[in-house]
Amino acid sequence: MTNKLSLSQATMRSRVAGIVAHVLLIGASIAMIYPLLWMLSASFRPENEIFTSTSLIPSSFSLTSYVQGWNGLPVSFGRFFRNSFLIATLCVVGNVFSCSLAAFAFSRLEFRGRRICFALMLMTLMLPYHVTLIPQYVLFRELGWVNTFLPLVVPKFLAADAFFIFLMVQFFRGLPKELDEAAMIDGCSPWRVYWKVIMPLSMPVLATASIFTFIWTWDDFLGPLIYLSDMPQYTAMLGLRTFVDSSGVSNFGGLFAMSVLSLMPVFGFFLLFQRLLIEGIATTGMKR
């Protein structure tokens, strides 16, 4: 009898603990998602209500902000999206290709000064972006590349992102060396080993690099701000800034509407590639 009682007391206690934990977690989730919901509702409500109403539900539902935001600037917002897409896509291609090649060299090829080069590369990882900002600007100005996409894209094709190289080196080191050797005996050049053996087995790390490159370049504000000065060249992030003008009229409805839209690609890209992150197929097929 006492046993039964204490048992039901125990289940009671664990149930209470579960409820408390859930309340806390749900509360924290709401605190996190609230700004996002607020922005979403602000993009649909009339302009004059944005900073006055406390409700999350708009009093009337309209798409005016979207229309205004898309067409309200001298250059259509579609143009900014196109620019952002172009830059982000080129950066993804450049990073995946050049960083994986560099990582292949560091992890698989024997060459003089490999360790020193690797250490130097890791040191650039610790250098803050802002230290190289001015020298880089001077360099690109001398090349005549300012006010083009080149300063934002070309470095990605030259394996400038040490973080991704490091990530890939770690991954490649986990792939069995016998695979390379088997491929060499099958007559493969290092280039073919890279392309036919290492690349297909590295989908998880390539997906990771793609996702982060896309999100980081899409969200990048400082780079485009420094190098792009004509409005037709603007990226979506620069476009958003133009809604809030220090000289006078700010279009907050348009700002929020376009902010919502510019979140979509990042969202979509992540959904598309996250499946690959989980698929680790690298070592099956070897001995257990």
Partner: peptide, 20 residues
């Protein structure tokens, strides 16, 4: 001379089959 040109073939302890 490169392995391939020696006219050899090798079987590895771990088999080293291409998993993909």
């Amino acid at each position: 001379i490169a392995p391939y040109e020696r006219g050899i073939a090798m079987v590895f302890q771990s088999y080293a089959l291409y998993p993909h």
